[in-house]
Amino acid sequence: MRKIGFSVIYFVLVSVIFILNYTFEHTAMVSYSFWNITRAVLLIFAVIVFPLLNRRIYSIAVTVLKEELRKKTLYVIFIFVALLVSLIHVFGKIAPANQHVFVGEMGLSGITLFGLLFGVFMSSTAMYKEMEKKTVYVLLSYPVSRQEIVMGKFIGNMISILLFSFLLSLIFVVSLLVRFGPINSVIVYSCFALMLEFVVIVAIATTTSTMLSSTSNIVFVIIIFLLGHMTEKITHIASRLEAQRLKEAAEVFVRVLPDFKRFEFKDALSLGTVIEPSVIIASLSYALFYSAVALIIGMLIFRRREVDRL
């Protein structure tokens, strides 16, 4: 491991999955459902399990998790949002005809708000704070590569946000079950999809925190979050552009942006349509692949970053 380096193996693993994906999506070598599941499993291994097998990344991730779990402000926000999502059914009376949908949307919005606040503020400062407080000086005097530091920070932050958003989702779903009895499966899928969205936000914020200051990064990630939810609109506007170059540039821009619409099932909730598990699995693969690419960029930037220049 030490001779080849973590980042090289990580890059190779992600590249192999990308090539396999390209091959299988453009040929009929294997069935879609088989590749959909295999791809998700491979990506879980490459993006989460493989880094955690590295003891240095694991140690950094555990320390990041400890830091987050010891923040009192986090618990204040968490308790506030937990109360909000558990009592959200009270507001259902506003829309008595469509209580399920209204309450579902409100609860999911609450979890999104928490995830966005927590994810953006926590991860946007991840690497920059290390440089600002100079803790990275001591860290780099140990046999840990810069790429492992970036990955450790990401994994730690990702576990923190997944833990808290899972707890919020659980509180939300249980409160709905208590109030309304059996609930629409779309709500459960939406909670899971939101967690995937948070993973992407954490990956982007961790990457950009290697070069941007905390405040600039918070603004940047919030803009990306908003644009990521507007990909359909941007595509629509781009299609109406007359200048071909501008159209192409807009298409590239949309491709580079994270497509957060993949994690949003509000339409299915309001229309009462069923979501296939394969859609969720595909969203999982998208989230992990996007995160992996973002992190590779982050690792490349931080590799040559002068840590005393802020």
Partner: peptide
């Protein structure tokens, strides 16, 4: 390496 100030994690 011992830096000029204690650049360690305050929460530990």
């Amino acid at each position: 390496y011992m830096p000029e100030e204690s650049y360690l994690y305050g929460f530990l």
